[in-house]
Amino acid sequence: MVAQTLPVSGQSAGMAVSFRFLLSLYGIVPICLIALGLDSWLFDHALRDALPSSPSHFLLFQVLFGTPHIVASNLLLVSHADYLKTFQRKLLGMSAFIVLFFGVGSLFIPYRVLYLISACWTVYHVLKQQHGIAKAVCRLPVWAFYLQLWLSVTAGIFTYIGIFMKNSLAPEQAALILQIATALTAALLAATWICQRHVASRLGWYFLWANTLLVVASWFVYCQQYYFLAILMPRLVHDITAYSFYATHDVNRHAGHPQNALFRLTEACRLPAVAVLPLLSFALTYWLQVHGDAAVNLILQTLFSTQVYKAATLGIVGYLALMHYYTEAFIWSAGSPLRRYIRFGRAS
């Protein structure tokens, strides 16, 4: 979810998104830093050696982080006919673009170029969400908001590249990536020190520094080669934040009066509205990761006598991720039908 500037509401009816709860998610940062310190000082890096070199190599990570909230976001749209009707032109247009650029285009565009585009979009999406939410309580001037955002995003991009492309980079390239990430992270710290004077509330000050320290901590653990932890921290903060919006929407729209077939079915099964998207998205993610490729290729082999490499885990999940990055930029903005079901707790 990429949040726009969010109005703070004092409404008590229904479920509300709590800014203090969202801030508490950043607690993963000191936990990971403490784990790194203990592992380095007491256990001779046993934890680092036991973790996979890349989070994408760890099935449990794939099932728990990243993909589930992407699946949930897409389910939220396609399970509501009124949302599909409202956004159908945008959805069809973006679907065509993804097929042409990332599908057909992959025949001509180098894989590394496509990967870098996806990586930049991923980092921008994750950090834009966190800064967009913080903007509601930080109330930074426009120039300060975008300074913080773009320094965070650029520092995050180089950290991300350093982690996920480390095996394909020459030593001098890896060193250059690290140097750039370090310089941008230092610039972000300096900018935050300058911008904090424009934050009026204590909660806003906490959010400002929480977003900065999220990037700084990811850079630091990347430098220490704890690649799993470097990705875990922003992923956990981002994903749970997104689910808090999805759950709030579902409770306020469907609890006690389900308005589509999915929630009528789950209510009949006595499943509370708040749990529908999380449980369904985790189940679908597990199926896609474990059985998706085989199932899709069975269909392709039966109908067309052909198979596609990672048809589900790369093709379908990749499509859903790109659609998620695109749609979350506008479905929660002012005037969107989804925003009618979102309320916010007080920011004081």
Rank of each mutant, 00 (worst) to 15 (best):
S40H: 05
L178G: 10
K90M: 10
E328D: 15
V78I: 11
P7C: 15
F58E: 11
A13K: 10
G256R: 10
Y83D: 09
P234Q: 04
A242E: 11
A217M: 01
A261W: 07
E172S: 15
R112V: 09
L33T: 00
M323L: 09
L147T: 14
I163S: 04
T285Y: 09
Q289D: 06
F263Q: 03
L189S: 04
I133T: 04
A329Q: 12
T266A: 05
H45Y: 12
T154M: 15
F245D: 10
Y243P: 02
T5Q: 15
W143S: 07
F19P: 10
V123W: 05
L303P: 03
G204V: 00
Q289R: 14
R235H: 15
Q129N: 02
N252Y: 06
S24L: 09
G204Y: 00
F158I: 04
T241G: 14
Y246N: 03
S79K: 07
E267L: 03
Q148V: 05
L169R: 01
V137F: 00
L42P: 01
V78Y: 11
S106Q: 09
N167Y: 07
N252P: 12
H131G: 01
L23F: 10
A144G: 05
Y341D: 09
S333C: 07
A136P: 04
I109H: 14
I299W: 05
G292A: 06
I157K: 06
I299Y: 07
I231L: 14
F158K: 01
Y341G: 05
E328C: 13
V29Y: 01
L279M: 14
F245E: 08
V17E: 00
S305V: 08
W143L: 06
D39W: 00
I299F: 12
L114K: 09
A183T: 04
F61G: 05
Q4C: 10
L203P: 01
N252H: 10
K310H: 09
A334Q: 13
V8R: 13
A81P: 02
I109K: 14
H238M: 03
P337K: 01
L100D: 07
T86D: 14
A275D: 12
L314M: 07
L84D: 14
F102T: 06
H324D: 11
R139C: 08
L91P: 09
P7Q: 15
A321F: 11
S152P: 02
D39I: 00
T5M: 15
F19Q: 07
A255E: 15
A329F: 08
A275C: 14
A46M: 08
V113N: 10
K85A: 13
M323C: 03
G315E: 07
V8L: 13
I180K: 02
A347T: 01
G204D: 00
Q130F: 08
F282Q: 13
I240C: 02
L320M: 12
I342E: 04
T285D: 10
Q88T: 12
F19H: 12
